[in-house]
Amino acid sequence: MFEKLIPKEAIAQYHIIQAEEDRSIHWKEHLSYAVRLGNEFKSKTTVTFNTTEGPQSVETTVWSLTENHISLKGGVLIPLNSIIDVHF
């Protein structure tokens, strides 16, 4: 699987769609750790998500985690059901 690393400012240019397998529950634990890393240690996380143009990755600080989304700086939201992978 090939994913493209994009700047977080470019996320709005893509149409985000659900991943082939919804792993939202699996990713919540990882992403809550990513929120802590970002807020306390200013550490970035690479999040790969699905779009109509294929998987895209962004290296960013995860600001918050809700029931259905992660929030990035600037109010950018990525649905949990679109996430394919998370790396610290």
Rank of each mutant, 00 (worst) to 15 (best):
66 T>K: 07
35 V>G: 01
45 T>D: 00
78 I>Q: 10
48 T>Y: 06
61 T>W: 02
18 Q>Y: 08
79 P>N: 01
24 S>W: 01
83 I>Q: 05
23 R>V: 00
83 I>C: 08
22 D>L: 02
25 I>T: 15
58 V>D: 07
53 E>A: 14
50 N>D: 14
17 I>K: 14
23 R>E: 13
51 T>N: 04
68 N>V: 03
13 Q>P: 02
16 I>F: 07
77 L>V: 02
85 D>C: 08
66 T>R: 09
59 E>C: 11
43 S>H: 15
9 E>M: 01
34 A>Y: 03
68 N>T: 15
39 N>I: 10
49 F>C: 09
83 I>S: 00
29 E>W: 14
70 I>A: 12
35 V>Q: 04
28 K>D: 07
2 F>P: 09
88 F>T: 11
59 E>P: 04
82 S>M: 10
59 E>K: 11
51 T>E: 02
1 M>F: 10
5 L>N: 12
26 H>K: 08
31 L>R: 06
14 Y>G: 05
63 W>P: 00
7 P>R: 03
35 V>P: 05
36 R>E: 15
10 A>W: 02
43 S>A: 14
21 E>C: 01
11 I>H: 00
12 A>L: 10
7 P>M: 03
13 Q>W: 05
20 E>Y: 06
32 S>R: 14
39 N>K: 15
47 V>G: 12
25 I>H: 13
86 V>W: 09
32 S>P: 03
57 S>E: 13
2 F>Q: 13
9 E>K: 05
71 S>F: 02
19 A>T: 00
87 H>K: 12
76 V>P: 03
51 T>M: 04
79 P>I: 04
41 F>T: 09
41 F>Q: 14
4 K>F: 15
79 P>R: 09
49 F>D: 08
36 R>K: 11
